[in-house]
């Protein structure tokens, strides 16, 4: 695991715990999406992971080392972007990079490399105050990439970006992960975008981790929740037929039948069955069960 927390708790006072028994497991080489509604504890968790908030010792491990005792060696392998990027707006993009490059004692030509990676080399001389939100976000990521980190920790990296900006950042992160093997831990509340990017997921609500697993686990969960809405000329007959043939449970609200199905082939078989039995299908719809609805389902259950 590249990040591991063990029963991590945190609160600014004794009576109000913001993080409760958090056990995050981020495998090396993964893109881990850390999801949750606003105020769930995402940024607090990231601040704890980066030592900006003090946790009880030996609860946070990065690169299998306890954070408190190994901050300098751990930080030398991390690039981070916390909430909005920390940028000196009166300086150029290049100068912003040079500040971090010199403090981290990185070779000077790395500045030009990261400017190219994030496609800001043509705007490197402009003052950051003249940058768009997307350019600032990319510059923040460029700063995080300067040290060629093994782990990127990004807090809401696509926040405030337009659709083009989101696609650019998504492609960049996937490229970094696939080509350089960089592990990425990113938080977001933009669920549809996260779905296209991550290999692993953690969902936090009210300071507690309520789901954690791979995207395959998610696919399984999605499968369990996938269902069809069907309208026929005889819903009662159709219900009995489907239940007897497939052993599936249906709900019937009078207008529509709702059937939870296992795989795509079952949809075709189900249609054939109804048509063969002389039942007319007026409407058939695959109900959406993407990450967003799964996320909402999980939150509701929590």
């Amino acid at each position: 695991m590249i990040i591991e927390t063990q029963d991590l708790n945190f609160g600014f006072d004794r009576h109000r715990q913001l993080i409760k028994n958090l056990n995050i497991m981020v495998p090396r080489g993964s893109i881990y999406g850390f999801l949750g509604p606003n105020g769930a504890g995402k940024t607090t968790t990231i601040r704890l992971l980066l030592g900006l908030l003090s946790a009880v010792p030996n609860k946070i491990y990065l690169f299998r080392q306890p954070l408190e005792e190994n901050k300098m060696s751990i930080f030398s392998r991390i690039g981070a972007l916390i909430e909005q990027p920390s940028l000196y707006e009166h300086l150029s993009g290049r100068d912003n990079l040079i500040v971090t490059q010199r403090l981290r004692n990185i070779r000077a030509n790395r500045v030009e490399e990261v400017l190219k990676i994030v496609d800001l080399h043509k705007d490197a001389r402009k003052r950051v105050s003249a940058y768009s939100m997307g350019m600032k976000q990319r510059l923040g990521i460029a700063i995080a990439l300067l040290a060629e980190p093994d782990l990127l920790i990004l807090d809401e990296p696509i926040n405030g970006l337009d659709p083009n900006g989101i696609i650019e950042i998504r492609e960049l992160l996937i490229k970094l992960n696939q080509e350089n093997g960089t592990s990425i831990f990113l938080s977001s509340h933009q669920l549809p975008e996260i779905e296209k990017l991550v290999t692993h997921l953690g969902i936090i609500d009210n300071g507690q981790l309520i789901f954690q697993g791979t995207i395959q686990d998610l696919g399984f969960a999605q499968g369990r929740h996938s269902h069809l809405k069907i309208e026929t000329n005889d819903n009662t007959k159709a219900q009995i037929l489907i239940e007897e043939t497939f052993g599936l449970r249906l709900s019937n609200d009078g207008n529509y039948l709702e059937v939870t199905y296992g795989d795509k082939e079952q949809i075709a078989s189900l249609c054939n069955l109804l048509v063969s039995a002389g039942i007319s299908i007026f409407h058939i719809e695959k109900a959406k069960s993407d990450l967003e609805s799964l996320f909402l389902n999980i939150l509701k259950k929590a």
């Binding site: 060696s73 930080f75 000196y88 403090l103």
Partner: peptide
């Protein structure tokens, strides 16, 4: 520039 949080996550004492 809200820069302290960035500086404190660098490997610099």
């Amino acid at each position: 520039s809200i820069a302290w949080k960035h500086l404190f996550t660098l490997p610099v004492k």
